[in-house]
Design a protein around this nucleic acid. Structure first.
Lengths: 253, 253
DNA sequence: AACACGCGTTGCAAAATACGCAACGCAATC
DNA sequence: GATTGCGTTGCGTATTTTGCAACGCGTGTT
Protein backbone atom coordinates (compact mmCIF):
# COMPACT_ATOMS: atom_id res chain seq x y z
CA UNK A 1 0.00 0.00 0.00
CA UNK A 2 2.51 2.57 1.03
CA UNK A 3 5.82 1.22 -0.06
CA UNK A 4 8.12 3.55 1.80
CA UNK A 5 6.21 3.20 5.05
CA UNK A 6 6.22 -0.56 4.70
CA UNK A 7 9.95 -0.56 4.22
CA UNK A 8 10.44 1.79 7.12
CA UNK A 9 8.51 -0.47 9.44
CA UNK A 10 10.46 -3.47 8.26
CA UNK A 11 13.59 -1.52 9.06
CA UNK A 12 12.39 -0.90 12.57
CA UNK A 13 11.66 -4.58 13.04
CA UNK A 14 15.11 -5.36 11.70
CA UNK A 15 16.77 -2.92 14.06
CA UNK A 16 14.82 -4.29 16.99
CA UNK A 17 16.46 -7.63 16.43
CA UNK A 18 19.93 -6.17 16.17
CA UNK A 19 21.49 -2.77 15.48
CA UNK A 20 22.89 -2.70 11.96
CA UNK A 21 24.78 -0.60 9.43
CA UNK A 22 23.30 1.01 6.37
CA UNK A 23 24.63 -1.60 3.98
CA UNK A 24 23.43 -4.49 6.08
CA UNK A 25 19.96 -3.06 6.08
CA UNK A 26 20.05 -2.30 2.38
CA UNK A 27 21.12 -5.78 1.39
CA UNK A 28 18.58 -7.44 3.65
CA UNK A 29 15.81 -5.36 2.16
CA UNK A 30 17.20 -5.72 -1.37
CA UNK A 31 16.93 -2.00 -1.93
CA UNK A 32 19.61 0.53 -2.72
CA UNK A 33 21.21 2.13 0.25
CA UNK A 34 20.23 5.64 -0.76
CA UNK A 35 16.63 4.64 -0.33
CA UNK A 36 17.24 3.13 3.07
CA UNK A 37 19.28 6.14 4.06
CA UNK A 38 16.47 8.54 3.31
CA UNK A 39 14.09 6.52 5.43
CA UNK A 40 16.57 6.33 8.27
CA UNK A 41 17.13 10.07 8.07
CA UNK A 42 13.52 10.91 8.52
CA UNK A 43 13.16 8.40 11.31
CA UNK A 44 16.25 9.80 12.94
CA UNK A 45 14.72 13.25 12.82
CA UNK A 46 11.67 11.97 14.70
CA UNK A 47 13.84 10.05 17.17
CA UNK A 48 12.51 6.68 16.06
CA UNK A 49 16.08 5.75 15.24
CA UNK A 50 19.47 6.81 16.56
CA UNK A 51 23.04 6.24 15.52
CA UNK A 52 25.53 5.04 18.06
CA UNK A 53 29.14 6.13 18.12
CA UNK A 54 30.18 3.62 15.44
CA UNK A 55 27.54 4.68 12.93
CA UNK A 56 25.37 1.70 13.66
CA UNK A 57 21.67 2.38 13.62
CA UNK A 58 19.39 1.34 16.44
CA UNK A 59 15.92 2.03 17.72
CA UNK A 60 15.41 5.45 19.24
CA UNK A 61 13.77 6.61 22.38
CA UNK A 62 10.60 7.84 20.69
CA UNK A 63 9.62 4.23 20.32
CA UNK A 64 9.92 3.59 24.03
CA UNK A 65 7.91 6.68 24.68
CA UNK A 66 5.13 5.60 22.35
CA UNK A 67 5.02 2.09 23.62
CA UNK A 68 4.71 3.11 27.24
CA UNK A 69 2.01 5.61 26.36
CA UNK A 70 0.15 3.00 24.35
CA UNK A 71 0.30 0.49 27.16
CA UNK A 72 -1.13 3.05 29.53
CA UNK A 73 -4.08 3.61 27.21
CA UNK A 74 -5.25 0.06 27.51
CA UNK A 75 -7.37 0.23 30.55
CA UNK A 76 -7.72 -3.49 31.04
CA UNK A 77 -4.05 -3.50 31.66
CA UNK A 78 -4.28 -0.75 34.23
CA UNK A 79 -7.13 -2.41 36.06
CA UNK A 80 -5.50 -5.82 35.98
CA UNK A 81 -2.06 -4.68 37.03
CA UNK A 82 -2.39 -4.64 40.82
CA UNK A 83 -4.25 -7.95 40.89
CA UNK A 84 -1.76 -9.73 38.68
CA UNK A 85 1.18 -8.24 40.56
CA UNK A 86 -0.32 -9.66 43.70
CA UNK A 87 -0.86 -13.05 42.07
CA UNK A 88 2.71 -13.00 40.89
CA UNK A 89 3.93 -12.05 44.33
CA UNK A 90 1.89 -14.75 46.03
CA UNK A 91 2.71 -17.62 43.67
CA UNK A 92 6.12 -16.47 42.49
CA UNK A 93 5.37 -17.74 38.98
CA UNK A 94 5.35 -16.04 35.58
CA UNK A 95 2.03 -14.29 34.97
CA UNK A 96 0.80 -13.11 31.56
CA UNK A 97 -2.06 -10.91 30.46
CA UNK A 98 -3.26 -11.36 26.86
CA UNK A 99 -5.80 -9.82 24.54
CA UNK A 100 -7.28 -10.59 21.14
CA UNK A 101 -6.09 -8.12 18.53
CA UNK A 102 -7.03 -8.44 14.88
CA UNK A 103 -6.70 -12.16 14.39
CA UNK A 104 -3.94 -12.73 16.87
CA UNK A 105 -3.50 -13.09 20.58
CA UNK A 106 -1.03 -10.60 22.01
CA UNK A 107 0.65 -10.48 25.41
CA UNK A 108 -0.01 -7.06 26.84
CA UNK A 109 1.56 -7.50 30.25
CA UNK A 110 3.99 -9.81 31.97
CA UNK A 111 5.19 -10.40 35.49
CA UNK A 112 8.45 -12.27 35.85
CA UNK A 113 8.90 -15.42 37.85
CA UNK A 114 10.78 -15.08 41.10
CA UNK A 115 12.53 -18.36 40.47
CA UNK A 116 15.82 -18.71 38.68
CA UNK A 117 14.29 -21.01 36.03
CA UNK A 118 12.26 -18.66 33.90
CA UNK A 119 10.45 -18.77 30.63
CA UNK A 120 11.05 -16.46 27.74
CA UNK A 121 8.32 -14.24 26.42
CA UNK A 122 7.85 -10.56 25.95
CA UNK A 123 5.13 -8.00 25.98
CA UNK A 124 3.89 -7.46 22.44
CA UNK A 125 4.64 -10.95 21.20
CA UNK A 126 1.80 -12.98 19.77
CA UNK A 127 0.75 -16.27 21.33
CA UNK A 128 0.15 -19.41 19.35
CA UNK A 129 -3.59 -19.78 18.74
CA UNK A 130 -3.85 -23.55 19.07
CA UNK A 131 -1.53 -24.20 21.98
CA UNK A 132 -1.35 -21.24 24.37
CA UNK A 133 -3.72 -21.44 27.31
CA UNK A 134 -4.62 -17.76 26.99
CA UNK A 135 -5.56 -18.24 23.34
CA UNK A 136 -7.89 -21.09 24.22
CA UNK A 137 -9.60 -18.95 26.83
CA UNK A 138 -10.07 -16.08 24.40
CA UNK A 139 -11.26 -18.32 21.57
CA UNK A 140 -13.61 -20.27 23.81
CA UNK A 141 -15.92 -17.29 24.26
CA UNK A 142 -16.31 -16.59 20.55
CA UNK A 143 -19.32 -17.63 18.50
CA UNK A 144 -19.00 -21.13 17.13
CA UNK A 145 -18.90 -19.93 13.55
CA UNK A 146 -15.91 -17.74 14.19
CA UNK A 147 -14.14 -20.48 16.09
CA UNK A 148 -14.61 -22.78 13.13
CA UNK A 149 -13.34 -20.23 10.69
CA UNK A 150 -10.23 -19.58 12.78
CA UNK A 151 -9.63 -23.25 13.57
CA UNK A 152 -9.80 -24.10 9.89
CA UNK A 153 -7.24 -21.46 9.01
CA UNK A 154 -4.44 -22.54 11.33
CA UNK A 155 -1.54 -24.74 10.44
CA UNK A 156 -1.09 -27.17 13.25
CA UNK A 157 2.66 -27.38 13.56
CA UNK A 158 3.46 -30.10 16.04
CA UNK A 159 6.02 -28.48 18.35
CA UNK A 160 5.75 -30.93 21.25
CA UNK A 161 4.22 -34.38 21.83
CA UNK A 162 1.08 -32.80 23.22
CA UNK A 163 0.37 -30.21 20.55
CA UNK A 164 -3.16 -30.34 19.18
CA UNK A 165 -2.99 -31.15 15.50
CA UNK A 166 -6.48 -30.78 14.08
CA UNK A 167 -9.34 -28.27 14.01
CA UNK A 168 -11.59 -30.94 15.52
CA UNK A 169 -9.32 -31.45 18.52
CA UNK A 170 -9.06 -27.71 19.07
CA UNK A 171 -12.81 -27.10 18.79
CA UNK A 172 -13.54 -29.93 21.20
CA UNK A 173 -11.11 -28.48 23.70
CA UNK A 174 -12.56 -24.98 23.31
CA UNK A 175 -15.96 -26.35 24.17
CA UNK A 176 -14.55 -27.88 27.34
CA UNK A 177 -12.75 -24.64 28.21
CA UNK A 178 -15.98 -22.72 27.79
CA UNK A 179 -17.79 -25.05 30.19
CA UNK A 180 -15.13 -25.37 32.86
CA UNK A 181 -14.10 -21.69 32.79
CA UNK A 182 -10.35 -22.19 32.43
CA UNK A 183 -7.80 -23.62 30.01
CA UNK A 184 -4.47 -25.33 30.21
CA UNK A 185 -1.46 -25.63 27.99
CA UNK A 186 -0.20 -29.03 28.96
CA UNK A 187 3.31 -28.58 27.52
CA UNK A 188 1.76 -28.16 24.10
CA UNK A 189 3.94 -25.29 23.00
CA UNK A 190 7.20 -25.93 24.80
CA UNK A 191 7.90 -29.34 26.24
CA UNK A 192 9.22 -27.98 29.52
CA UNK A 193 6.54 -25.43 30.34
CA UNK A 194 2.86 -25.80 31.20
CA UNK A 195 0.28 -23.13 31.95
CA UNK A 196 -3.22 -22.48 33.20
CA UNK A 197 -5.31 -19.53 32.06
CA UNK A 198 -8.65 -17.98 33.02
CA UNK A 199 -10.94 -15.42 31.39
CA UNK A 200 -11.40 -11.76 32.31
CA UNK A 201 -14.87 -10.35 31.55
CA UNK A 202 -16.17 -6.82 31.21
CA UNK A 203 -19.54 -5.45 32.27
CA UNK A 204 -21.30 -7.06 29.30
CA UNK A 205 -19.97 -10.47 30.28
CA UNK A 206 -17.80 -10.76 27.17
CA UNK A 207 -14.32 -12.17 27.59
CA UNK A 208 -11.99 -9.25 26.92
CA UNK A 209 -8.69 -10.67 28.13
CA UNK A 210 -7.06 -13.72 29.66
CA UNK A 211 -4.51 -14.16 32.43
CA UNK A 212 -2.23 -17.14 32.85
CA UNK A 213 0.42 -18.68 35.07
CA UNK A 214 3.31 -20.42 33.32
CA UNK A 215 5.51 -22.83 35.23
CA UNK A 216 8.42 -25.05 34.21
CA UNK A 217 7.40 -28.70 34.51
CA UNK A 218 10.54 -29.45 36.52
CA UNK A 219 9.19 -27.13 39.14
CA UNK A 220 5.61 -28.25 39.45
CA UNK A 221 3.75 -31.39 38.34
CA UNK A 222 0.51 -31.07 36.40
CA UNK A 223 -1.39 -31.63 39.65
CA UNK A 224 0.63 -28.88 41.29
CA UNK A 225 -0.16 -26.61 38.37
CA UNK A 226 -3.87 -27.17 38.85
CA UNK A 227 -3.53 -26.14 42.46
CA UNK A 228 -2.74 -22.63 41.17
CA UNK A 229 -6.22 -22.42 39.70
CA UNK A 230 -8.07 -21.11 42.77
CA UNK A 231 -5.55 -18.27 43.09
CA UNK A 232 -5.70 -17.51 39.38
CA UNK A 233 -9.50 -17.57 39.27
CA UNK A 234 -9.67 -15.33 42.32
CA UNK A 235 -7.48 -12.80 40.52
CA UNK A 236 -9.30 -12.89 37.18
CA UNK A 237 -12.65 -12.63 38.91
CA UNK A 238 -11.48 -9.67 40.96
CA UNK A 239 -10.29 -7.96 37.76
CA UNK A 240 -13.60 -8.74 36.06
CA UNK A 241 -15.50 -7.23 38.96
CA UNK A 242 -13.34 -4.11 38.70
CA UNK A 243 -14.34 -3.91 35.04
CA UNK A 244 -18.00 -3.95 36.00
CA UNK A 245 -18.76 -7.64 35.62
CA UNK A 246 -21.28 -9.20 37.97
CA UNK A 247 -21.05 -12.89 38.63
CA UNK A 248 -24.20 -14.82 37.91
CA UNK A 249 -22.92 -17.99 39.50
CA UNK A 250 -25.01 -19.38 42.25
CA UNK A 251 -22.96 -18.77 45.37
CA UNK A 252 -24.21 -21.82 47.25
CA UNK A 253 -26.60 -24.35 45.80
CA UNK B 1 12.67 13.90 3.23
CA UNK B 2 10.21 11.09 3.05
CA UNK B 3 6.86 12.75 3.22
CA UNK B 4 4.68 9.72 3.75
CA UNK B 5 6.91 8.32 6.46
CA UNK B 6 7.01 11.66 8.19
CA UNK B 7 3.24 11.83 8.18
CA UNK B 8 2.99 8.27 9.40
CA UNK B 9 5.22 8.99 12.37
CA UNK B 10 3.26 12.10 13.18
CA UNK B 11 0.16 9.93 13.15
CA UNK B 12 1.71 7.56 15.63
CA UNK B 13 2.60 10.43 17.91
CA UNK B 14 -0.94 11.71 17.58
CA UNK B 15 -2.40 8.33 18.44
CA UNK B 16 -0.11 8.03 21.41
CA UNK B 17 -1.77 11.04 22.90
CA UNK B 18 -5.26 9.76 22.29
CA UNK B 19 -6.99 7.23 20.01
CA UNK B 20 -8.78 9.02 17.18
CA UNK B 21 -10.97 8.59 14.10
CA UNK B 22 -9.87 8.93 10.52
CA UNK B 23 -11.36 12.37 10.07
CA UNK B 24 -9.88 13.72 13.25
CA UNK B 25 -6.46 12.60 12.14
CA UNK B 26 -6.95 13.97 8.66
CA UNK B 27 -8.02 17.41 9.79
CA UNK B 28 -5.21 17.66 12.32
CA UNK B 29 -2.66 16.80 9.68
CA UNK B 30 -4.39 18.97 7.04
CA UNK B 31 -4.27 16.14 4.55
CA UNK B 32 -7.07 14.36 2.79
CA UNK B 33 -8.42 11.36 4.57
CA UNK B 34 -7.66 8.98 1.75
CA UNK B 35 -4.02 9.69 2.29
CA UNK B 36 -4.23 9.11 6.01
CA UNK B 37 -6.26 5.99 5.44
CA UNK B 38 -3.61 4.44 3.25
CA UNK B 39 -0.96 5.08 5.84
CA UNK B 40 -3.12 3.65 8.59
CA UNK B 41 -3.80 0.58 6.47
CA UNK B 42 -0.20 -0.26 6.05
CA UNK B 43 0.51 0.38 9.69
CA UNK B 44 -2.44 -1.78 10.60
CA UNK B 45 -1.04 -4.58 8.51
CA UNK B 46 2.22 -4.44 10.46
CA UNK B 47 0.37 -4.18 13.78
CA UNK B 48 1.73 -0.70 14.51
CA UNK B 49 -1.88 0.44 14.68
CA UNK B 50 -5.17 -1.29 15.52
CA UNK B 51 -8.82 -0.37 15.29
CA UNK B 52 -11.01 -0.86 18.27
CA UNK B 53 -14.63 -1.95 18.02
CA UNK B 54 -15.86 1.61 17.33
CA UNK B 55 -13.53 2.21 14.40
CA UNK B 56 -11.20 4.34 16.44
CA UNK B 57 -7.55 3.91 15.69
CA UNK B 58 -4.97 3.34 18.37
CA UNK B 59 -1.39 2.21 18.74
CA UNK B 60 -0.81 -1.47 18.10
CA UNK B 61 1.11 -4.15 19.84
CA UNK B 62 4.05 -4.17 17.45
CA UNK B 63 5.28 -1.10 19.24
CA UNK B 64 5.44 -2.94 22.53
CA UNK B 65 7.25 -5.75 20.88
CA UNK B 66 9.86 -3.53 19.29
CA UNK B 67 10.52 -1.46 22.33
CA UNK B 68 10.86 -4.38 24.68
CA UNK B 69 13.17 -6.13 22.24
CA UNK B 70 15.32 -3.07 21.87
CA UNK B 71 15.55 -2.53 25.58
CA UNK B 72 16.50 -6.13 26.12
CA UNK B 73 19.42 -5.90 23.76
CA UNK B 74 20.68 -2.63 25.18
CA UNK B 75 22.34 -4.41 27.95
CA UNK B 76 22.62 -2.39 31.03
CA UNK B 77 26.32 -2.75 31.25
CA UNK B 78 26.90 -1.23 27.85
CA UNK B 79 24.56 1.65 28.47
CA UNK B 80 25.91 2.33 31.93
CA UNK B 81 29.57 2.14 31.01
CA UNK B 82 30.25 5.66 29.76
CA UNK B 83 28.27 7.25 32.57
CA UNK B 84 29.98 5.28 35.29
CA UNK B 85 33.38 5.81 33.73
CA UNK B 86 32.69 9.50 33.87
CA UNK B 87 31.54 9.30 37.48
CA UNK B 88 34.65 7.36 38.34
CA UNK B 89 36.80 9.90 36.54
CA UNK B 90 35.15 12.82 38.26
CA UNK B 91 35.16 11.48 41.82
CA UNK B 92 38.17 9.21 41.61
CA UNK B 93 36.46 6.60 43.76
CA UNK B 94 35.62 2.96 43.19
CA UNK B 95 32.35 2.56 41.25
CA UNK B 96 30.34 -0.66 41.03
CA UNK B 97 27.42 -1.75 38.89
CA UNK B 98 25.31 -4.60 40.29
CA UNK B 99 22.30 -6.64 39.22
CA UNK B 100 19.98 -9.15 40.81
CA UNK B 101 20.58 -12.62 39.43
CA UNK B 102 18.73 -15.63 40.78
CA UNK B 103 18.71 -14.92 44.47
CA UNK B 104 21.98 -13.07 44.63
CA UNK B 105 23.32 -9.66 43.89
CA UNK B 106 26.19 -9.77 41.41
CA UNK B 107 28.69 -7.11 40.46
CA UNK B 108 28.57 -6.81 36.68
CA UNK B 109 30.98 -3.93 36.25
CA UNK B 110 33.65 -2.14 38.24
CA UNK B 111 35.74 1.01 37.88
CA UNK B 112 38.89 1.19 39.99
CA UNK B 113 39.68 3.96 42.41
CA UNK B 114 42.37 6.42 41.34
CA UNK B 115 43.73 6.51 44.85
CA UNK B 116 46.42 4.27 46.26
CA UNK B 117 44.10 2.88 48.97
CA UNK B 118 41.72 0.62 47.09
CA UNK B 119 39.13 -1.90 47.96
CA UNK B 120 39.08 -5.44 46.76
CA UNK B 121 36.25 -6.76 44.65
CA UNK B 122 35.79 -8.27 41.24
CA UNK B 123 33.21 -8.42 38.51
CA UNK B 124 31.11 -11.53 38.98
CA UNK B 125 31.43 -11.61 42.76
CA UNK B 126 28.24 -11.62 44.77
CA UNK B 127 27.44 -8.90 47.25
CA UNK B 128 26.16 -9.52 50.72
CA UNK B 129 22.37 -9.10 50.72
CA UNK B 130 22.01 -7.49 54.13
CA UNK B 131 24.97 -5.14 54.14
CA UNK B 132 25.94 -4.01 50.64
CA UNK B 133 24.41 -0.71 49.57
CA UNK B 134 23.67 -2.04 46.07
CA UNK B 135 21.78 -4.97 47.56
CA UNK B 136 19.62 -2.68 49.62
CA UNK B 137 18.76 -0.63 46.56
CA UNK B 138 17.82 -3.71 44.55
CA UNK B 139 15.83 -5.27 47.38
CA UNK B 140 14.02 -2.04 48.17
CA UNK B 141 12.06 -2.11 44.90
CA UNK B 142 10.74 -5.65 45.37
CA UNK B 143 7.26 -6.47 46.59
CA UNK B 144 7.01 -6.57 50.36
CA UNK B 145 6.20 -10.27 50.42
CA UNK B 146 9.37 -11.14 48.59
CA UNK B 147 11.45 -8.89 50.77
CA UNK B 148 10.11 -10.69 53.81
CA UNK B 149 10.84 -14.09 52.37
CA UNK B 150 14.39 -13.09 51.53
CA UNK B 151 15.00 -11.27 54.80
CA UNK B 152 13.81 -14.30 56.72
CA UNK B 153 16.19 -16.60 54.88
CA UNK B 154 19.44 -14.77 55.57
CA UNK B 155 21.90 -15.49 58.29
CA UNK B 156 22.97 -12.20 59.76
CA UNK B 157 26.66 -12.76 60.38
CA UNK B 158 27.97 -9.77 62.28
CA UNK B 159 31.11 -8.80 60.36
CA UNK B 160 31.47 -5.26 61.70
CA UNK B 161 30.01 -3.22 64.54
CA UNK B 162 27.39 -1.73 62.23
CA UNK B 163 26.13 -4.89 60.52
CA UNK B 164 22.35 -5.26 60.59
CA UNK B 165 21.50 -8.39 62.52
CA UNK B 166 17.78 -8.99 62.13
CA UNK B 167 15.15 -9.23 59.40
CA UNK B 168 13.25 -6.43 61.12
CA UNK B 169 16.20 -4.07 60.99
CA UNK B 170 16.78 -4.89 57.32
CA UNK B 171 13.14 -4.48 56.31
CA UNK B 172 12.93 -1.16 58.13
CA UNK B 173 15.99 0.07 56.31
CA UNK B 174 14.68 -1.14 52.93
CA UNK B 175 11.56 0.90 53.46
CA UNK B 176 13.66 3.97 54.11
CA UNK B 177 15.79 3.27 51.04
CA UNK B 178 12.68 2.96 48.88
CA UNK B 179 11.45 6.33 50.08
CA UNK B 180 14.68 8.27 49.91
CA UNK B 181 15.87 6.76 46.65
CA UNK B 182 19.35 5.74 47.74
CA UNK B 183 21.09 3.43 50.21
CA UNK B 184 24.28 3.42 52.21
CA UNK B 185 26.57 0.79 53.61
CA UNK B 186 27.87 2.53 56.69
CA UNK B 187 30.89 0.26 57.20
CA UNK B 188 28.52 -2.66 57.65
CA UNK B 189 30.47 -5.15 55.60
CA UNK B 190 34.05 -4.07 56.08
CA UNK B 191 34.95 -1.76 58.94
CA UNK B 192 37.17 0.46 56.83
CA UNK B 193 34.90 0.98 53.81
CA UNK B 194 31.57 2.74 53.39
CA UNK B 195 29.41 3.16 50.28
CA UNK B 196 26.41 4.90 48.78
CA UNK B 197 24.23 3.35 46.06
CA UNK B 198 21.36 4.47 43.85
CA UNK B 199 18.87 2.66 41.61
CA UNK B 200 18.87 2.36 37.82
CA UNK B 201 15.43 1.95 36.24
CA UNK B 202 14.26 0.73 32.86
CA UNK B 203 11.34 1.97 30.78
CA UNK B 204 8.80 0.20 32.98
CA UNK B 205 10.15 1.99 36.03
CA UNK B 206 11.41 -1.24 37.58
CA UNK B 207 14.81 -1.16 39.28
CA UNK B 208 17.05 -3.28 37.08
CA UNK B 209 20.46 -2.45 38.49
CA UNK B 210 22.25 -0.39 41.09
CA UNK B 211 25.41 1.68 41.00
CA UNK B 212 27.55 2.55 43.98
CA UNK B 213 30.59 4.49 45.14
CA UNK B 214 32.83 2.80 47.71
CA UNK B 215 35.33 4.82 49.72
CA UNK B 216 37.75 3.96 52.51
CA UNK B 217 36.68 5.68 55.73
CA UNK B 218 40.19 7.01 56.23
CA UNK B 219 39.72 8.98 53.07
CA UNK B 220 36.29 10.47 53.51
CA UNK B 221 34.05 10.96 56.54
CA UNK B 222 30.42 9.83 56.42
CA UNK B 223 29.43 13.42 55.67
CA UNK B 224 31.95 13.51 52.86
CA UNK B 225 30.51 10.27 51.51
CA UNK B 226 27.04 11.77 51.38
CA UNK B 227 28.38 14.62 49.31
CA UNK B 228 28.97 12.10 46.54
CA UNK B 229 25.23 11.50 46.30
CA UNK B 230 24.31 14.27 43.82
CA UNK B 231 26.99 13.04 41.43
CA UNK B 232 25.91 9.44 41.83
CA UNK B 233 22.23 10.22 41.38
CA UNK B 234 22.97 12.28 38.29
CA UNK B 235 24.75 9.29 36.78
CA UNK B 236 22.11 6.69 37.66
CA UNK B 237 19.36 8.92 36.38
CA UNK B 238 21.18 9.51 33.12
CA UNK B 239 21.58 5.76 32.70
CA UNK B 240 17.91 5.21 33.47
CA UNK B 241 16.94 7.72 30.85
CA UNK B 242 19.12 5.95 28.30
CA UNK B 243 17.23 2.77 29.13
CA UNK B 244 13.96 4.46 28.26
CA UNK B 245 12.89 5.53 31.72
CA UNK B 246 10.92 8.74 31.95
CA UNK B 247 11.03 10.63 35.19
CA UNK B 248 7.63 11.36 36.65
CA UNK B 249 9.01 13.92 39.08
CA UNK B 250 7.58 17.36 38.60
CA UNK B 251 10.28 19.47 37.04
CA UNK B 252 9.09 22.75 38.48
CA UNK B 253 6.86 22.96 41.51
C1' DA C 1 -40.59 5.30 7.03
C1' DA C 2 -37.79 8.48 4.84
C1' DC C 3 -33.76 11.36 5.26
C1' DA C 4 -29.55 13.28 6.56
C1' DC C 5 -25.23 12.71 8.73
C1' DG C 6 -20.87 10.61 9.98
C1' DC C 7 -17.33 7.51 8.82
C1' DG C 8 -14.76 4.60 5.95
C1' DT C 9 -14.01 2.89 1.01
C1' DT C 10 -13.10 2.88 -4.08
C1' DG C 11 -11.26 4.28 -8.80
C1' DC C 12 -8.85 7.37 -11.40
C1' DA C 13 -5.86 10.81 -13.45
C1' DA C 14 -2.06 14.20 -12.38
C1' DA C 15 2.37 15.11 -10.58
C1' DA C 16 5.01 15.26 -6.78
C1' DT C 17 7.81 12.17 -4.63
C1' DA C 18 10.78 8.43 -3.91
C1' DC C 19 13.92 5.66 -6.46
C1' DG C 20 18.32 3.85 -8.45
C1' DC C 21 22.60 5.01 -10.20
C1' DA C 22 27.28 6.47 -10.25
C1' DA C 23 30.68 9.17 -8.31
C1' DC C 24 32.69 11.37 -4.14
C1' DG C 25 34.53 12.06 0.74
C1' DC C 26 36.40 10.33 4.61
C1' DA C 27 38.02 6.96 7.93
C1' DA C 28 40.15 2.94 9.41
C1' DT C 29 43.05 -0.97 7.93
C1' DC C 30 46.84 -3.46 6.10
C1' DG D 1 50.11 4.99 0.70
C1' DA D 2 46.82 2.07 -1.37
C1' DT D 3 42.58 -0.35 -0.32
C1' DT D 4 38.34 -1.46 1.78
C1' DG D 5 34.16 -0.10 4.15
C1' DC D 6 30.66 3.21 5.14
C1' DG D 7 27.90 7.22 4.53
C1' DT D 8 26.83 11.29 1.37
C1' DT D 9 25.47 13.99 -2.80
C1' DG D 10 23.16 15.32 -7.29
C1' DC D 11 20.29 14.17 -10.87
C1' DG D 12 16.98 12.25 -14.35
C1' DT D 13 13.29 8.90 -14.52
C1' DA D 14 8.95 6.83 -13.56
C1' DT D 15 6.84 4.81 -9.84
C1' DT D 16 4.29 5.89 -5.96
C1' DT D 17 1.60 8.86 -3.62
C1' DT D 18 -1.87 12.21 -3.65
C1' DG D 19 -6.43 14.67 -3.92
C1' DC D 20 -10.84 14.52 -5.62
C1' DA D 21 -15.53 13.10 -6.23
C1' DA D 22 -18.71 9.65 -5.69
C1' DC D 23 -20.32 5.55 -3.22
C1' DG D 24 -21.73 2.26 0.65
C1' DC D 25 -23.25 1.53 4.96
C1' DG D 26 -24.93 2.05 9.46
C1' DT D 27 -27.15 5.53 13.04
C1' DG D 28 -29.98 8.46 14.71
C1' DT D 29 -33.58 12.15 13.59
C1' DT D 30 -38.01 14.04 12.22
Amino acid sequence: MSQSLMRAMDLLAELAAKPATLDELASKASVHKTTIMRLLHTMEEKRFVVRDENQRFQLGSKLFELSSLALEQRDIRKVAHPHLAELNGRTGHTVHLAEFEGNEVVYIDKFESHHPVRMYSRIGLTASLHSAAVSKVLLADMPRSRQERIAAGLDYIKVTDNTLTSPEALLAELEQVRIQGWAHDNAEHEAFVHCVAAPIRDASGAVVAAASCSVPVVMLSYEGLLELLPDLKASTEAISRDLGWISHERTTP
